[in-house]
Structure formats: structure tokens, C-alpha cells
């Protein structure tokens, strides 16, 4: 019975992936990709990876989905004339390929698929690191093994990854993003939306804090909490309160860097005391990890909402150019 469910889920995921690439209209692609993310989240649940499921649903389907939707404003414009021109350009470039190269390509991909399937089918039992992580779990300061790996056993990866988020933000800036004040939009004048935002802001904050705290013992943690808090920033931005742009510069920069910076400075301090980088005394590991996670969540939230705000701004400028020409 459970094999049937898993099989159906697998087929669904493959179908959605294929369709999101083959769908003729971009809007369809993006929504099918959304659905693909949710199907994957279900797969994580089936594989007992609840932490991953929350992350996937929050970041990959949620945050990235919002970015894609926002991008549709550019690429699938509501003005039909422009859309047609784009579609024409699109279909013209599609017909250029020749038969023979295509055949080779598909044959190559088919062969590649076959050896990939053989590779995962014949994979030897590696045994994993479950036992090793289990033995050392009591020394890590937390009870959730995934949090223990993320924040203690492999804290270096997690730290670098927070660097990647910050680099991602800098990169969006480098691509020409400008932090500017969004015009107070229609949204903020809508009484219902206003109420919704006012209601959801504290709820999201609480829920994020809950996920952050529960990460010590169960599924949850800095990344999931960071995305939820980031959602607050996105909601406020869309509602016409672009608080990141309104914030004093130094405060924004502090929020963005505090996670990465504190993590590193703490690591250096313990290194100066004679240990290795990111080596915490076991007695304090629990509380230190909680502090690091809180600050990390703040930085992640700030970075994600800033990334959204910048991308949104790119669309806004495009709209302006459109309306002036």
C-alpha cells in the first residue's frame, strides 16, 4: 500500500517536473514548478525528513515561488500586444533546431538516464553516519540530530552557507538592484489587506520564534524561522511599508551581517582559547547554538526580504519605463 503511494508521488513529481518545462505558457510553468516543490515536500515527509520538508516548503516552494511570481510581471505581462510579440519571438527561436542534432541530443539524454538509473539502482550500502551522529548527539547540546549536524558537527558548512545568502544579496545589488522607496501602493490603501498584514505579522513572528525554539528538540531551526520572518518583510514591503529601505543604513547592515559575524567572532574567540573554529564547550553548546540560530534567523530574514524588495524594484522600474514610453 505504502509503495503505491510512494510510486504515485514519484510519478507525480516527475510529471510535474516535465510539464513545468514543457508547458507552452510561462505562467503555467511557474505554477507547475510550485506544485513540483510541494510534491517534493510530500516526498521528504514520506522519507521522514521533516526538517527538509519545512525548508523545501518555506524556501524552495514559498520564497522562490514568490520571486518567480513577481518575475511573471515582467515575462508574462498582462498587456496582450506585448505578450504576443514575446511569444512570437519565442516560437521563432524554437523552430531553429535541426532534426539530427536533436536526435543525438535525445539519444544522449536517454543513455545518460539509463546509466544514471543503473548507478542509483546498484548503489552499495554505505551505512551513512547515523550511528556516529547518534553517539555524539549528547555532546552536541541539542536533541534534534539535524540541528546538531547543522549547527555543531558541520557548523562550518552552515556558516559558509549564510555567507552565500549574503553574497546572493550583494549579487542582486551587483545586477543593478537599487534599494529605493516603493511608492505607497494600492495595497496599503486597501483596508482588508491592511488588516491581514497587521494580523499576520505577529502571527508569523510567533510561529518563526516557535520553529526556532523547537529546532533544539524537533524539526525546525534557523532557516525555517528565518524564512518565516523574511515573509514578514515581504508582506510589509508589498503592503506599502518598505521597512528595510526606510531603516537607517547601519541598522540594515547590522541585521544582515549579525548572523554571519557573530557566528565567526564566537568561533574565533573559542579558537583563541585553544580550541578549533566553531568548537563550543559542551556545557554551553545548547545556549550558544540557540543564540547563533536566533541571530542567523534574523540575518536570513533580512537578506531574503531585501532580495525580494530588490527584485520587486526591478519590476517596478520596468513598469515605469513601460508607462513612460
Amino acid at each position: 500500500m505504502s509503495l503505491i503511494i510512494d510510486g504515485l508521488l514519484a510519478i507525480l513529481a516527475i510529471y510535474l517536473a516535465l510539464q513545468s518545462l514543457l508547458a507552452p505558457r510561462l505562467t503555467q510553468s511557474v505554477f507547475l514548478f510550485f506544485a513540483f516543490g510541494l510534491a517534493l515536500a510530500l516526498a521528504w515527509i514520506r522519507l521522514a525528513a521533516v526538517d527538509v520538508a519545512i525548508t523545501e516548503a518555506a524556501i524552495a516552494a514559498g520564497f522562490l515561488g514568490v520571486l518567480f511570481l513577481d518575475a511573471l510581471r515582467d515575462f508574462a505581462p498582462r498587456i496582450p500586444a506585448k505578450n504576443e510579440a514575446v511569444q512570437k519571438q519565442y516560437s521563432k527561436s524554437q523552430t531553429k533546431s535541426l532534426f539530427l542534432p536533436r536526435l543525438t541530443l535525445w539519444a544522449g539524454l536517454g543513455l545518460f538516464l539509463l546509466i544514471a538509473l543503473e548507478a542509483v539502482w546498484k548503489i552499495p550500502e554505505g551505512g551513512g553516519l547515523t550511528a556516529a551522529a547518534g553517539t555524539l548527539l549528547p555532546e552536541s547540546g541539542v536533541e534534534n540530530p539535524v540541528t546538531a549536524v547543522l549547527l555543531n558537527f558541520r557548523a562550518y558548512d552552515t556558516w559558509l552557507e549564510m555567507g552565500v545568502i549574503l553574497i546572493g544579496l550583494l549579487a542582486v545589488f551587483a545586477a543593478g538592484g537599487k534599494m529605493a522607496y516603493r511608492k505607497p501602493g494600492v495595497a496599503s490603501q486597501d483596508p482588508l489587506l491592511r488588516q491581514v498584514i497587521l494580523f499576520f505579522t505577529p502571527v508569523l513572528f510567533l510561529f518563526g520564534a516557535f520553529l526556532l525554539y523547537i529546532g533544539k528538540t524537533g524539526p525546525g531551526g534557523a532557516f525555517q524561522a528565518g524564512v518565516l520572518w523574511g515573509a514578514i518583510g515581504i508582506l510589509l514591503h508589498l503592503g506599502g511599508w518598505p521597512f528595510i529601505a526606510l531603516m537607517p543604513r547601519w541598522l540594515g547592515q547590522l541585521l544582515l551581517t549579525v548572523g554571519l559575524g557573530f557566528f565567526l567572532v564566537l568561533g574565533f574567540l573559542f579558537m583563541a582559547a585553544g580550541g578549533a573554529l566553531f568548537e563550543y564547550p559542551p556545557a554551553y553548546a545548547g545556549i550558544l547554538i540557540l543564540i547563533i540560530e536566533t541571530l542567523a534567523a534574523i540575518s536570513i530574514a533580512a537578506a531574503l526580504s531585501a532580495i525580494f524588495a530588490l527584485l520587486n524594484q526591478i519590476g517596478e522600474e520596468a513598469d515605469e519605463i513601460e508607462s513612460t514610453t
Binding site: 558541520r154 562550518y156 552557507e161 555567507g163 546572493g168 550583494l170 549579487a171 545586477a175 543593478g176
Partner: peptide, 30 residues
């Protein structure tokens, strides 16, 4: 796996540097 993370640190920052000029050719190439 750590190599993957460092590859990404290098990759994203390298592309970000490559598009700094903001010119269309740089953006497309980026």
C-alpha cells in the same frame, strides 16, 4: 560537500563581479 559550498561561494561571487559594469553584454554573459 564542503567543496560544493565553497564552489558556490566562489561561483556566485564570481558572476556577481562579472556583471558589475551593468552593461547588457555583461549581464547576458553573466
Amino acid at each position: 560537500f564542503n567543496l560544493f559550498v565553497t564552489l558556490e561561494v566562489v561561483g556566485i561571487s564570481a558572476v556577481a563581479l562579472a556583471v558589475l559594469s551593468g552593461k547588457t553584454t555583461a549581464l547576458t554573459a553573466g
